[in-house]
Each structure stands twice: as C-alpha cells, then as structure tokens.
Design a protein around this nucleic acid. Structure first.
Lengths: 184, 184
DNA sequence: TTGGATTGTATCTAAAAGATATGTCTAGCA
DNA sequence: TGCTAGACATATCTTTTAGATACAATCCAA
C-alpha cells in the first residue's frame, strides 16, 4: 500500500483507546488487531515521530527513564476520524496457499491433499481461538462501548473460518472421489 | 513480503502454463489469479530479467519488433516446483474494512451500518462473478489438466464470499435490534 | 547473582505498490 | 487516405512496508 499511510491510521486508532508507549502500540496491534492487521515494527517509531511533528500526538515522560507515553491530541482525534471515514482502498491479496492450489497440477495431487488438510487443521485451531476470544470479550467489562464492535469483527473471523473448514472438507472429499481428474 | 521473492514464484508458475511476453504475464496474473494474487506491474520486468540471468527462463523474438517471448527452461521448471513445495509464509493481512469496524465506536453506528451494507453488496456481486467463472471454467476444454485445480480455488472464493454475506446479514440484524449498545 | 524474559527505542535492507513515461501496432471511422 | 483511440509492450522511479536486527535498561526467578 504505497501512498496511503495506513500505519498512521492504525497507530492513531490504537492511541485513541488509551495513551501508551510505542512498544505498547506494537503489542496492542499484535494482540488485538492481529487477526486482520499487522504493523511492521520498524514503522511505528517513524510514524509516531511524524504524528508528533504534525501535532496529532503529544509526548510525555513515561514511567521509566527513556520511555515516552504518547497520547492523541484533539487534532489527532479529528484526523483519526477523518481517516476512518475515508473509503478503504483494499490492499491486494497475495495468498500463497491459493496460488499453490491453482498450480496444483505442477505440485501433484498428494501434495495438494496435504496442503488442504493442513489448512483445515489450522482453521479448526483458529476457530477455537475465535470462540474463546468471543467468550472472553463478551464477559469483559473494561471497554463496554467498544465491546459490540469488537464482537462484530470476531464474528466475521468465525464465519470466514467456518467457511474455510467446510471448503476444506468438501475439497478433500472431491480429491478422494475424482482421483483420476487430478493428474499430475 | 520482504525476503521472499514471491513475485518469482508467480511469474514462474504463469510461464509454466505457456510461454508469453511480460505484458501477457501481467494480464494473466490479473485475470486468472486476481482473486487471490496481485502482481505489482513494476516487479515483472525486473523479475524476468533476474530469472533470465539465472537461466530459469529463455527469451525469444516476439511477434512484433521489440517484444520478447519468455519460456520456462528445464531448470526453471525444477525451481518452480521446488518453490511451490516450500511452505507458504503467509503475508500479513491489512484489512481496512475490519479495522474500521473494530474502531467503529469512533466512527459511529450509522457509518458502520453503511460500511457493512456496502460490504454485503460487494460480496453479492462477487459471488455472481465466482458463479459465472465456475460455469465457464467447467465448460472449458483448453486446459483440462488444470481445470479441477482451478475449480478448487474458485470454490474457495464462493465459500468465503457466502460466509461474508451471511455475516453481513447477521451483523445488520444485530445493529438494528441492539441499537442502544452501539453508542458513539 | 546471574541470566533470561520483558520493556523500550531505533535503524537498515530489500521487496512491493502503484504511478508514470514511452513507443508500436491495429482497427475503426471520417 | 489519414487520423486517432485503444490495445500491446517495455521500462523506471518513489514511497511505503516487511522483517531483521542492534542495543540497553529493568524485572524476576532460580
């Protein structure tokens, strides 16, 4: 995503929940947005510096020497909302798993079968993670106003993952029954 | 995806189906892999040059002056298979739509509703595209040995898209019934 | 008390996104 | 016949991102 500064948006949003250090921003993005977002570590400090220069965030002394707490300014909050309201230009997908299946003829039916089985197992584990997270967020009382929105995104993960499992089961059945079609 | 040269794999695979020009490689990736892969235009020519230098592809005169047809060498085919067999290290997701919903409290319930409706409409259109493509590939006889693998990836798209529609319907119903929970 | 895990800041390289420049060939049409 | 719009084709450039890595302080536990 050149030309878009999506990192800025993610950092602003994360600081919008509560003030924190750059390190904590990284941890929050990894732990809370990890299912649909990732932030390259090396981008966070330069982005914080740019936001500071623009006046979108403020820097305060942290709890230990050398550490800094960043918090949103009023301008930063306005900018966050304006960025959130802009249409999302989706980043191009690069799904190496699908690429491998598409060229499955070169890979051979056995290797493809193994890939699909792997994908199904990973999806099952993933579903369990989503379900546990769902229950945890539902019982949490710290961020009541955020909670329903967080549940929406978790529900999206559950739907997608269940679909992946169903597709994998169906595909494995097809690989078994039409074995002759999947020649190398 | 630093450190991975996924472009090389995609280009090798595309040339594996039949020899073509750089321009045609780009078109094939856009038209055939577009649902799960995208190749940055500016990467294709440098990648072809690198593959040529390694001896993985050969360059021949094209149909018109100045154009070149690239084809896989034996070494290139071996390398393609070896890359296909390597485990796929998934590229990190950056889903701006989910990011916006996660921070939906800052965006407000009405804007979120509009986003979900938009996503549902886009998914419906997408499903129609997948279904048409499914029928088309099924009736095609040019690439019989590739066909079943291509259908597997199309089926994955259909499953995912149906799940997205179901999630959107469910989410819209929730936004209507629990209106009070989604305060700004 | 040492040593491993966590917190915290910062920089570097390589790869990718996407815009853009440039030129040729072909088909339609005025 | 000449013109022009659009497809074909190659190539380069800048900004953003991925991901590795370096370095140091602090905390905790064996």
């Amino acid at each position: 995503m050149a030309r878009q500064k999506q990192t800025e948006l993610a950092v602003l949003c994360t600081l919008g929940v509560q003030p924190m250090t750059g390190y904590a921003v990284r941890a929050a993005i990894r732990d809370q947005l990890g299912f649909f977002w990732s932030e390259s570590f090396g981008q966070i400090y330069p982005t914080l510096a740019a936001l500071l220069a623009r006046g979108d965030v403020e820097k305060h002394e942290g709890t230990r020497p050398g550490s800094s707490l960043y918090s949103l300014t009023h301008a930063g909050r306005l900018r966050m909302i304006s960025l959130l309201e802009q249409p999302d230009s989706p980043t191009p997908r690069r799904d190496g798993f699908m690429l491998r299946l598409f060229f499955g003829r070169s890979l051979g039916p056995d290797a493809c079968r193994a890939l699909v089985e792997q994908a199904r197992d990973r999806a099952r584990q993933q579903l369990a993670v989503y379900e546990a997270l769902h229950a945890q967020v539902e019982s949490e009382t710290d961020y009541l106003q955020h909670q329903p929105y967080w549940l929406i995104t978790i529900s999206a993960g559950e739907h997608t993952t269940r679909a992946a499992i169903a597709w994998a089961d169906e595909t494995l059945a097809k690989l078994d029954s039409d074995r002759d079609a999947y020649v190398r």
